[in-house]
Design a protein around this nucleic acid. Structure first.
Lengths: 187, 187
DNA sequence: TCGCGCATGTAAGTTGTTACATGATTTA
DNA sequence: TAAATCATGTAACAACTTACATGCGCGA
């Protein structure tokens, strides 16, 4: 449901092709809304059918024509209306937490391995967000309101990763305590 | 995909009816995995067909028979195997952040209203988690490993809510600065 | 008497994932 | 020369949501 509006918001910022949008969703919007290229193309088709975006075809040699989507007045109107409605919070569904819930069936060593995996993901995510921060939002005092709000969305990503990493330390400590079976030491 | 394992994990803890499971998913598992009763009943049907749970029917008067599901050896095996596999992190999809991304189209006053809404949700969530903490995990030093891991899953919920609330303050301040148009004061 | 809790389900629709498909250009 | 990037899509499936359906007992 909100994918539609995420696309309109992205296009409102700047017209783009499906491919471009896919890149943006993977980078600057990673923090906000995830969508695969298949979903994006499908939804763009619907938006076009509904007159909320228009397409300009750009012929290219050696690859499919580029289709640049731009938001229409109708699209902007739909987006503006949606902005007024209070949206429900997204549901939490975390397989890693399911594993912790399963508790005593789980092998602490396996959980530790998985934790390290997620942790390094979180660290690199945080790094990417920091890069975006430095690239686009250097001096927040001078930003106009559009970018200021985008920055606050990014801040959400940053604080979330920090919170993840903090919790990861709590968990690591506990898991280590749960496996006193040590590797035999090399002589 | 993971709903299946969330159900097995819940049943491994204690056999239950679909109705009971729905309650548990809304309370102790709210933090971990969300699922509606329709999803739960459907998935339980599949698990039964696959021999991963068995049902005991309990006749009742005045209401439908209660069907108590219990995990089987096969179910426990499937769960154990799944626990060994590293699962991908869940995708982020937050409509409220989409709104911030839309930036200058949005009315700061409307965003503030929505923020207050979410914030009070977060506060009450945090309160509920604290209640669970006090009810089930009073003295963590003496917990066995099953409950210790469940406690760490709960800790994730608590730290996440705290992080949400911290960010909410940042955002509130910014939104207030963006609307210097004041209500006309009463004389 | 009205709504909530108990207790189960069916049906239809939307959203998201996975697999398949094509083919030139640039980079290592 | 192999892989990644550019650029678009179709098809089938799985997961999740929303609406509909039933009906008793209990407390305000």
């Amino acid at each position: 449901m909100a994918l539609k509006y995420a696309l309109l918001a992205a296009l409102q910022e700047e017209a783009a092709s499906g491919y471009d949008l896919t890149q943006r969703f993977r980078t600057r919007l990673a923090n906000v809304w995830n969508a695969s290229h298949q979903q994006i193309y499908r939804e763009l088709g619907k938006l076009e059918a509904g007159g909320q975006v228009i397409v300009e075809e750009i012929a290219q040699q050696g690859r499919p024509d580029k289709r640049i989507y731009a938001i229409t007045a109708r699209g902007r109107e739909a987006l503006t209306q949606w902005l007024e409605t209070i949206q429900p919070r997204p549901a939490t569904r975390d397989p890693f937490l399911v594993k912790l819930f399963a508790g005593d069936l789980a092998d602490p060593a396996a959980l530790l391995r998985e934790l390290e995996h997620h942790r390094s993901n979180w660290r690199s995510q945080l790094g990417q967000y920091r890069t975006i921060e430095n690239t686009y939002f250097l001096n927040p005092g001078q930003m106009d309101s559009q970018y200021r709000l985008q920055y606050l969305a990014l801040r959400r990503g940053i604080t979330a990763m920090q919170s993840n990493l903090g919790w990861a330390e709590e968990l690591e400590e506990a898991l280590k305590e749960m496996m006193p079976e040590r590797e035999p030491e090399e002589p």
